[in-house]
Computed example of a mutant assay.
Amino acid sequence: MTITLVGEKLAKPGVEFIYYGPADPCKSCRLARVCVGNLEPGRRYKVVRVRNIEHSCPLHEGKVRVVEVIEPAIEVAIEPRVAIVGSKIKLSFVECNDPEKQSLTRPEGLFEGDIVKILEISDDFECDEKHYKVARVMREKE
């Protein structure tokens, strides 16, 4: 669980967002360490709890709220030979030339080389005449 700050409109349990890095005003903000300092650029986060603490912010229509976030499970296409529920693997993105399938072949929030735990296998996936499995995975933090 990570503590951070999000704009008031995003401060609802279940809301997911991808953190792309700090904006210019964040670099000199006194709250930057707890706000953007706890997040990793390119990762997906899900709000699980909203605390009753708010602060002013020039970027988020005046206010941010303190929230608890987690990295949610993400669906990704993987090689069938490593598709074993409960196992931990080093993520290797599959090759697929169809840009419409990028959300499964290179989902935002995961990086090549991440260590992930396979939570479930939900579907089969085909691209460029190759067969893969769709797995819900959770990134394992070092």
Score class of each variant (00 low, 15 high):
residue 101 K to G: 03
residue 35 C to E: 07
residue 131 H to D: 00
residue 125 F to K: 05
residue 79 E to L: 10
residue 20 Y to T: 14
residue 79 E to N: 11
residue 104 L to S: 02
residue 64 V to W: 06
residue 16 E to G: 10
residue 103 S to W: 00
residue 123 D to M: 05
residue 92 S to Q: 05
residue 96 C to G: 02
residue 70 I to E: 09
residue 67 V to W: 08
residue 58 P to E: 12
residue 122 S to L: 00
residue 117 K to E: 05
residue 33 R to K: 15
residue 76 V to T: 01
residue 3 I to K: 15
residue 101 K to I: 05
residue 100 E to W: 04
residue 62 G to M: 07
residue 7 G to T: 10
residue 141 K to E: 08
residue 141 K to S: 06
residue 32 A to C: 11
residue 34 V to A: 15
residue 74 I to V: 04
residue 52 N to P: 09
residue 138 M to L: 12
residue 41 P to Q: 11
residue 17 F to Y: 12
residue 27 K to Y: 10
residue 54 E to F: 14
residue 17 F to V: 13
residue 65 R to M: 11
residue 21 G to F: 09
residue 87 S to Q: 08
residue 91 L to M: 04
residue 108 E to L: 04
residue 93 F to V: 00
residue 101 K to W: 04
residue 2 T to P: 08
residue 16 E to R: 12
residue 20 Y to E: 15
residue 30 R to K: 14
residue 116 V to R: 00
residue 121 I to R: 00
residue 21 G to W: 09
residue 8 E to R: 15
residue 76 V to K: 02
residue 20 Y to L: 13
residue 103 S to E: 00
residue 52 N to E: 14
residue 130 K to Q: 08
residue 74 I to Y: 01
residue 33 R to Y: 15
residue 117 K to D: 04
residue 81 R to V: 02
residue 118 I to K: 00
residue 64 V to C: 09
residue 103 S to T: 04
residue 41 P to T: 09
residue 83 A to G: 00
residue 106 R to L: 00
residue 125 F to H: 08
residue 69 V to A: 06
residue 30 R to E: 15
residue 15 V to P: 10
residue 141 K to H: 06
residue 36 V to E: 12
residue 51 R to M: 14
residue 99 P to M: 10
residue 84 I to A: 07
residue 26 C to L: 11
residue 9 K to D: 15
residue 50 V to M: 11
residue 80 P to M: 09
residue 64 V to A: 05
residue 115 I to D: 01
residue 1 M to Q: 14
residue 62 G to L: 05
residue 41 P to R: 10
residue 58 P to M: 09
residue 27 K to W: 10
residue 48 V to S: 00
residue 3 I to G: 13
residue 55 H to G: 07
residue 82 V to K: 04
residue 31 L to R: 14
residue 101 K to H: 05
residue 62 G to K: 03
residue 94 V to Q: 02
residue 70 I to T: 07
residue 124 D to N: 02
residue 85 V to S: 02
residue 35 C to L: 10
residue 6 V to R: 01
residue 2 T to I: 15
residue 23 A to N: 11
residue 16 E to M: 11
residue 91 L to W: 07
residue 118 I to C: 01
residue 62 G to N: 06
residue 34 V to H: 12
residue 113 G to Y: 03
residue 102 Q to C: 02
residue 43 R to N: 09
residue 1 M to H: 15
residue 52 N to Q: 13
residue 24 D to A: 14
residue 99 P to S: 09
residue 11 A to S: 12
residue 103 S to Y: 06
residue 126 E to M: 03
residue 105 T to I: 04
residue 132 Y to T: 03
residue 11 A to N: 06
residue 113 G to H: 01
residue 80 P to N: 07
residue 96 C to S: 01
residue 29 C to H: 13
residue 8 E to M: 15
residue 128 D to Y: 04
residue 26 C to V: 13
residue 99 P to T: 09
